[in-house]
Design a protein around this nucleic acid. Structure first.
Length: 415
RNA sequence: GCUGGAGUCGUCUAGUGGCAAUGACAAGAGACUGUAAAUCUCUCGCCUUCGGGCUUCGUAGGUUCGAGUCCUACCUCCAGCA
């Protein structure tokens, strides 16, 4: 079982540490969206520099390119992309359901590759196999997103997600036993001592990583045989009776943790999370899937018991020139920043704010320079990562409510 | 000076008798939440109570119900010849 230590709780909120084979995640934490094994516009070294603790890649995209076997050959996702820290993969369900021409059956989903139109199928089993080959620390169960927000569609999607969860768990256990063996699942640290460092010589990238990340504990193991963990995904949309039913079902499957999916706005999220997280067991981590573009998502998510978040919003906003400040988002492309020779934020310690002015960023965006997207992504990703880190600190210091009120009233004061 | 060609929204451009007039760029603004997104949308002559009104295709005349478009003169630019 995935090791998750809770350090402190306040209501449903908690501060903890997730121990993965590739290192620890201090929670609450924002996980960088690295869909195609890269956080767009950023290097992994830049991600580390801005304080990111973990990344989340996407099974659908990696199946198409470069292929899961290639990532396995590279020593798994963390080695392949030189992140060398905790990794998640999303199952691919979310992407596939966003494609046109998908046909869904109990067996799985048939879809066409958005790259070359090839007809493909993903099932709970094939998603598990792909995720094991990719080799992230934490996998998401293959779930079904509703095609509309009607109650009937939400219920249908939830029930299929539950049926598929059973198959995900079965397949996950089958693969795990074939690669790692039976026994206590909380054994990644024991596994290290048992297996020793026999394979070190074949894994130079791992060895190099050790020098840059001394807290790393897994060097010397075949990264493709490290313990990997499975999160069940709670569905049910905006209907809290369905959310409760889904939470109960997921809980009964005894996964390593939980993803809360199908959330698209912070409206009503507090009640939904109260419902779900009051049911889910306290001692397992919960990931709020896809939320975190708006700071309010993170405050509400953490307050009501979510431990990790991921969202493409911060980096996508950055590439499109919409940059976070404590007073709300600004569009750096606007003419008003042409002669603004101050940083985005005076007190921000990101590489962008420490070195560059708004006028310079404005110029880079207006001239469509690649560096514009790099610097903006550094700032936005840092802003969101840091905000969640601050939420963690405020929970530890018993100042969460003050921090939340001060932050949100300032950030959204123009609304 | 002669001959030929060309002048259309900030720029380049479409338009060869019928609705302020095409497209691109530039400019101005907006959107974006488990990334088919370095993407997409809107505005872009002036005024507007958003119904519409007014003024425009180098300048000035003319033909015509109607002219960016046809005719005349002039101005400017380009090319060639002197």
């Amino acid at each position: 079982m995935l090791k998750f230590d809770i350090i402190k709780t306040e209501g449903l909120a908690r501060v903890g540490v997730i121990h993965t084979p590739h290192g620890d995640i201090k929670t609450p934490a924002f996980v960088g969206a690295a869909t195609r094994a890269t956080v767009k516009a950023l290097t992994m070294q830049e991600m580390r520099g801005l304080g990111s603790q973990a990344i989340l890649a996407n099974t659908y995209h990696l199946i198409l390119r470069p292929g899961t076997e290639l990532i396995k050959s590279a020593g798994g996702l963390a080695n392949f992309c030189s992140w060398h820290g905790p990794t998640f993969t999303d199952s691919g369900g979310f992407q596939i359901f966003s494609l046109p021409d998908v046909s869904i059956s109990e067996h799985g989903v048939k879809f066409k590759s958005h790259i070359d139109g090839a007809s493909l199928e993903m099932t709970p089993e094939s998603s598990m196999q792909a995720q094991w080959a990719i080799g992230a620390d934490i996998h998401m169960a293959f779930d079904h997103l509703a095609k509309s927000d009607s109650y009937d569609d939400m219920k249908e999607a939830m029930l299929r997600t539950h049926a598929w969860l059973d198959r995900c768990v079965t397949e996950h256990e089958r693969i795990r036993e074939s690669l790692i063996g039976k026994g206590d699942r909380n054994t990644f640290s024991k596994g290290i001592s048992e297996r020793g460092s026999a394979r070190v010589s074949a894994l130079a990238p791992c060895r190099r990583a050790r020098a840059t990340r001394p807290e790393e504990k897994v060097f010397g193991q075949d990264p493709c045989r490290l313990e990997q963990y499975l999160y069940a995904i709670v569905q049910g949309g905006t209907f809290n009776d369905l959310r409760a039913e889904s939470a109960e079902y997921c809980k009964s499957n005894d996964p390593d943790g939980f993803g809360i999916g199908g959330v698209f706005t912070a409206d009503g999220m507090d009640e939904m999370l109260k419902t779900v997280n009051s049911i889910l067991p306290d001692d397992k981590p919960r990931h709020l899937l896809g939320m975190g573009q708006e700071p309010v998502d993170l405050f509400i998510g953490a307050e009501y018991g979510c431990d990790t978040f991921d969202c493409v919003g911060p980096t996508r906003m950055a590439r499109n020139g919409s940059l976070y400040t404590k007073d709300g988002r600004i569009n750096i492309k606007n003419a008003q920043y042409t002669h603004d020779f101050t940083p985005l934020e005076d007190d921000c310690d990101c590489e962008c704010c420490k070195n560059y002015t708004k006028a310079y960023l404005h110029h880079l965006f207006k001239t469509n320079e690649i560096t514009a997207k790099v610097l903006a992504s550094i700032h936005n990703e840092h802003f969101i990562v840091k905000t969640v880190d601050n939420i963690r600190e405020s929970l530890l210091n018993d100042t969460f409510q003050d921090y939340k009120t001060a932050f949100l009233s300032r950030y959204y004061k123009s609304l």
